[in-house]
């Protein structure tokens, strides 16, 4: 009885879980750029490149999934390197809009190389369908697990400390002899590699890809994973991706009011936890206050610091 119940739950939410894992990877791809103080929205574009390269290899050359994933990630990484060299000189929202522009250029490009000399390339707006489903749940678990391992290693390394120094203040970091440009390029290329790989996995999960999935909305959605979840440690984007992917599914009973409640939850979450849901300082405070009478909500007290 219980096993039947759990099996049903698993069957209903397996796909949601898989999308949440893909979202986690994408969130991490934004997280790594945010860690170096870069506001990049290029992940959706990189994901698109990865998805198409991987899917085309699988369809035309029948490559194994691993080969497609590596090729897709590599393609996105190379584009990331070429794009990063000029645009990473921009900062803040100027970089954000330049990377959004990159995403739009990729989208239009994918729409227009629908076929060359009679052979279907991207299929334009019709997209590519009949992509074999090769991504298994455990592939994604493993993929995100590997990323976590990578980020834990980075945290403990010179590179991680350099990233943090750059995010805190890149002028100071530069004056301490950290090669800011090089580290930022590294972060940007890593971000592209991760998003490209995630794109290949997702293409082999949904049987279908089309250019519009990776436009402006896609880019903003990925950014919200990292901001809502928190971009201070790697756990943040993963939590953000899980919540933002599961929330609309769990709110299905609300029918047409679903987006409204979704929006309300977003606002409340960010107001009470402005540094993201995974905010180590906040949770440490909560942990210390456990057992004590909860009369003054800890959030309110933290806001008193405002001038």
């Amino acid at each position: 009885m219980l096993t039947q119940f759990l099996t049903d739950i698993w069957l209903v939410y397996r796909s949601v879980f898989e999308f949440a894992l893909i979202g986690s990877a994408l969130g991490l791809s934004i997280y790594i750029t945010l860690r170096t103080g870069l506001l990049s929205l290029a992940s959706a574009g990189f994901m698109s490149i990865g998805a198409y390269v991987g899917a085309l290899l699988t369809i035309h050359l029948h490559t194994p999934l691993l080969v497609s994933v590596l090729a897709g990630a590599l393609a996105a990484g190379v584009i990331g390197l070429l794009l990063g060299l000029p645009v990473l000189r921009l900062s803040g929202v100027y970089l954000a809009i330049a990377t959004i522009g990159f995403g739009e250029v990729v989208r239009v490009f994918m729409l227009n190389i629908d076929n060359l000399a009679g052979r279907t390339i991207t299929g334009g707006a019709l997209g590519l369908n009949n992509i074999p489903r090769k991504t298994e749940t455990w592939h994604l678990v493993l993929f995100v697990g590997l990323l976590i391992y990578l980020f834990v290693r980075i945290d403990r390394s010179r590179t991680g400390r350099a990233f943090d120094a750059i995010r805190q203040d890149h002028h100071v970091a530069a004056s301490m002899g950290i090669n800011v440009v090089q580290y930022r390029n590294l972060a940007f290329v890593l971000s592209a590699l991760i998003a490209g790989a995630a794109g290949v996995f997702s293409a082999h999960l949904t049987y279908f890809v089309s250019p519009n999935e990776y436009g402006f909305n896609g880019a903003v959605r990925i950014l919200t994973f990292a901001i809502l979840g928190g971009y201070l440690i790697w756990l943040g984007p993963i939590v953000g991706a899980f919540i933002l992917t599961f929330l609309p599914e769990l709110l299905r009973f609300l029918g047409p009011y679903r987006p409204i409640v979704n929006g309300v939850v977003l606002i409340l979450a960010i107001i009470y936890l402005p540094r993201g849901l995974v905010d180590p300082t906040f949770w440490r405070k909560v942990w210390r206050q456990r057992g004590k009478p909860p009369s003054p909500p800890p959030l309110e007290t933290s806001s008193e610091a405002a001038p």
Partner: peptide, 21 residues
Amino acid sequence: CEDTAGDKAQAINAFQKLINQ
């Protein structure tokens, strides 16, 4: 009725829910 929001991922999720739940 389940809302897909015009999104392919949500369409998959909606199908899974309709079929399994």
